[in-house]
Computed example of a mutant assay.
Amino acid sequence: MRVLLIEDESRLAEFIRQGLVQHGHVVDVAADGPTGLELAALAAHDVVLLDMMLPGQNGLDVLRNLRQFGAEPQVPVIILSALSDTRHVISGLDAGAQDYLRKPFELDELLARLRALERVRAAPAGAAPLRLLDLELDPLHRAVTRAGIPISLTNREFALLELLLRHAGRVVPKTRIAEKVWEVEYDMGSNVIEVHISQLRRKLDRAFPDQPPLLETVIGHGYRLRG
């Protein structure tokens, strides 16, 4: 993959760059927002790794500019940030990021998330649509609709919904979600799954008040799609 890393902390940027290069990735590095946007316009990237606290232009503004004016507005963006409370995570996801990785993090976790993106990009050509009542997910075209209305999902939300749809009517534990969607062991102290479930519920259920809710939390066990 060709990766654009926008990170102003030089030692961390070099650590990430070296780690990614050692695993076969090509990495372009920018130390501030404006330079990152210039590099994004100069070359096609498979993913952008974006710090939130940047000189010149903060990460959220960079993300919004990538989405609104970038040469490739759909390029996946993973936020790397020490701003780890739920409010900042939701702001980043709502601004168009596919994922949010809290600092400090292990390089192996970042690599796992990049592999997850690659799997999504390489969805099998013959993948059949998944349906539950008025909800439909098309793995081939990466499209989701409910009651015929398109729903925009991040890569992580798409993978989470696909997992739940493939087990529709059954409870999917958090441990399995972490293993299949994040490729990591479930961290009891992390709320990243809850944040993504909340975002998915907002888009699937709250956005369709006239339709029956589909996403259910089974306290102490996990989540399921019912219908």
Score class of each variant (00 low, 15 high):
Ala178Ser: 13
Ala207Tyr: 08
Val181Ala: 03
Met188Gly: 11
Ile177Leu: 06
Ser198Arg: 09
Val195Lys: 02
Lys174Ser: 14
Trp182Pro: 01
Leu165Gly: 02
Val171Ala: 05
Gln199Ser: 10
Pro213Glu: 08
Val184Ser: 11
Lys180Ile: 12
Leu200Gln: 02
His196Asp: 11
Glu162Ile: 04
Lys174Ala: 15
Leu200Phe: 04
Pro173Gly: 10
Val195Gly: 04
Val184Arg: 12
Val171Leu: 04
Arg170Ala: 13
Leu200Met: 04
Pro173Met: 11
Met188Asn: 13
Ser190Trp: 02
Glu185Phe: 14
His167Pro: 09
Leu164Val: 05
Ala207Gln: 12
Ala207Thr: 08
Val184His: 08
Val192Thr: 14
Phe208Ile: 08
Val172Arg: 00
Leu200Trp: 01
Val184Lys: 09
Pro173Asp: 11
Ala207Lys: 08
Lys180Pro: 05
Asn191Arg: 10
Ile177Trp: 00
Asn191Gly: 12
Arg176Met: 12
Gln199Asp: 06
Val195Trp: 05
Val192Gly: 03
Met188Val: 14
Ser190Pro: 02
Lys174Ile: 10
His196Cys: 03
Arg201Asn: 12
Glu194Thr: 15
Val171Trp: 03
Pro209Met: 09
Asp187Gln: 13
Gly169Asp: 09
Pro212Ser: 01
Leu163Ser: 06
Glu179Phe: 13
Glu185Cys: 12
Met188His: 14
Pro212Gly: 02
Gly189Tyr: 15
Ser190Ala: 11
Ala168Gln: 12
Gln211Thr: 07
Asp205Phe: 02
Phe208Met: 05
Val171Asn: 05
Val181Pro: 02
Arg202His: 14
Thr175Asn: 15
Glu183Leu: 14
Lys180Asn: 10
Trp182Met: 10
Arg176Pro: 04
Leu163Tyr: 06
Pro212Glu: 01
Lys203Glu: 07
Val192Ala: 15
Glu183Gly: 07
Lys180Asp: 11
Asn191Glu: 13
Thr175Pro: 04
Glu185Ala: 15
Val181Glu: 03
Ala178Trp: 06
Val192Met: 13
Pro213Thr: 09
Trp182Asn: 03
Glu162Met: 13
Ile197Asn: 01
Asp187Pro: 05
Glu179Leu: 14
Gln211Gly: 03
Asp205Gln: 02
Ala168Lys: 07
Arg166Leu: 09
Pro213Val: 09
Gln211Asp: 10
Met188Phe: 15
Leu200Pro: 00
Leu204Asn: 00
Leu165Tyr: 01
Val181Gln: 03
Pro173Lys: 08
Leu164Ile: 09
Phe208Gln: 03
Leu165Phe: 08
Ile197Tyr: 01
Arg166Pro: 04
Leu204Met: 05
Leu163Glu: 09
Arg176Gly: 02
Arg176Ser: 08
Asp205Met: 00
Asp205Tyr: 03
Val172Ile: 11
Val172Leu: 02
Asp210Tyr: 11
Lys203Leu: 07
Glu162Gly: 08
Asp210Thr: 14
Lys180Thr: 11
Leu163Val: 07
Glu194Pro: 05
Val172Tyr: 01
Leu161Glu: 07
Arg170His: 15
Arg202Gln: 15
Pro212Cys: 01
Arg202Lys: 12
Asp187Phe: 07
Ile197Asp: 00
Leu163His: 10
Lys174Trp: 10
Ser190Tyr: 02
Glu194Val: 12
Met188Arg: 15
Trp182Lys: 01
Arg201Gln: 13
Met188Cys: 13
Pro173Arg: 08
Glu185Asp: 14
Asp187His: 11
Ser198Lys: 08
Ala207Glu: 11
Thr175Phe: 10
